[in-house]
């Protein structure tokens, strides 16, 4: 049986389009105690006590901090969970 003589043309193209990244930002608030904020970060962000304390201090001193950066879907989930802990959490697109 004769083989078809069509040579398929294959092209490869590297995609360099990066996914947009999103920041989970938490602002300082006057109601929640520092220890409570640390417990919230450990439970929601699944980070160590030391990392949670570092973030909490940064928020206390600077007024806000980015506590997580990554894909939109996960960022939305984290913001919602932090808001359920009554923290002032917001979603911001990474610059």
């Amino acid at each position: 049986m004769a083989r078809p003589k069509i040579k398929p043309e294959v092209r490869t193209e590297a995609s360099t389009k990066a996914e947009k990244r999103w920041n989970v930002v938490v602002r300082n608030d006057p109601v929640n105690f520092m220890g409570y904020v640390v417990v919230a970060f450990v439970n929601v962000l699944r980070i160590s006590q030391d990392s949670a304390k570092r973030l909490m201090r940064l928020i206390h001193e600077e007024g806000r901090a980015t506590v997580w950066t990554g894909g939109r879907e996960r960022a939305e989930m984290l913001v919602l969970e932090l808001q359920q802990w009554h923290l002032d959490a917001r979603l911001e697109q990474d610059a």
Binding site: M34, Y36, V38, Q49
Partner: peptide
């Protein structure tokens, strides 16, 4: 709340 944090996670304080 602080009493509860102290019992639940004393190192947070």
């Amino acid at each position: 709340q602080q009493s509860l944090v102290a019992q639940l996670s004393p190192e947070s304080l």
